[in-house]
Design a protein around this nucleic acid. Structure first.
Lengths: 152, 152
DNA sequence: TGAAGATACTTAACATGTTAAGTTAATGCG
DNA sequence: CGCATTAACTTAACATGTTAAGTATCTTCA
């Protein structure tokens, strides 16, 4: 069998870990996990979002998101209110404290990202992300068989 | 702030998830997680390995590996014996049952990998992996400050 | 040699990944 | 209307990620 340490999944895993290793210490200083940070960032970009929408944006599964939102709400970093049009849905938004926390972390985060870009090269980084997007796209169509074929 | 859904960590995460989504169902049919499969594959390639070495190969942290080895041993898929030279170390190897299980999964796994390669393109895949390796490498040197500078 | 330090794991504790099941609210339709 | 179905979460259960602490063994050097 193929040497699995050279397989695509392992390459992607190691690359991502190498990248995240740069960010985690700084996030940790602020008591944030990678996932919590993703949620705050996603919320900062919009006024409010439903949980399902947020799950899609932050690329988290529902159960993970449920737990994290519970914790972030307990820390007063986000706010929730049930939508009046549909009592099942809850609208999530970032709180003032959440914005403040983001403001305190964002500069370091940006600096780290800039350093990664500098080391790897901005052009190469763009190429890499283009390829990653294509990979995602060409595999997405495989899974489509599960969903309703509304484009038939 | 940058649109985080276009950030490198998110690109890597989504790409990897798109890939792993192809494999998980088949592994699940055989009662294996992605990590357990990594360990079996790593062990199949060698006679035996120490736990630390295995952790490095399968890219798992010690605590995760400890738990997984305990479970795989309970399922008789691996075997362990303490090294006589150093009682702290334990040598891990795949069992006959483990080999049998691997043999039953490997063809599907290879087929899925081949299909991914076909869809994305073998040349592009090689390019992508080359870039991922470079990314890993150019970030690895950053972390080296933590470790003993034995190359000074 | 024998006590301090290092090494190789393992355990613990908490957060998330993942699938299945449960809850509550909305929709469709007879 | 009322009941079945669907939708949006949430909870549960188990596996792994991650850091810190614990344990047993080995090394080393006074």
């Amino acid at each position: 069998m193929r040497d699995f340490s050279r397989s695509l999944p392992m390459s992607l895993l190691r690359a991502r870990e190498a990248v995240m290793r740069q960010f985690r210490p700084k996030l940790r200083e602020h008591g944030l996990t990678e996932q919590q940070w993703r949620i705050l960032r996603a919320l900062a970009a919009i006024e409010a979002a439903e949980v399902t929408e947020l799950a899609r944006t932050a690329f988290l599964l529902g159960p993970s998101l449920s737990r994290i939102l519970r914790d972030l709400e307990a820390r007063n970093l986000i706010e929730r209110k049930t939508a009046q049009a549909d009592q099942r849905r809850s609208m999530v938004s970032i709180s003032k404290e959440g914005v403040k926390l983001m403001a305190s972390v964002a500069p370091s985060s940006e600096a780290i990202y800039a350093e990664i870009t500098r080391r790897f090269g901005a052009r190469k980084l763009a190429e890499l992300q283009e390829m990653l997007g294509q990979l995602e796209l060409c595999l997405a169509s495989v899974d489509a068989s599960d969903e309703i074929a509304d484009d038939a």
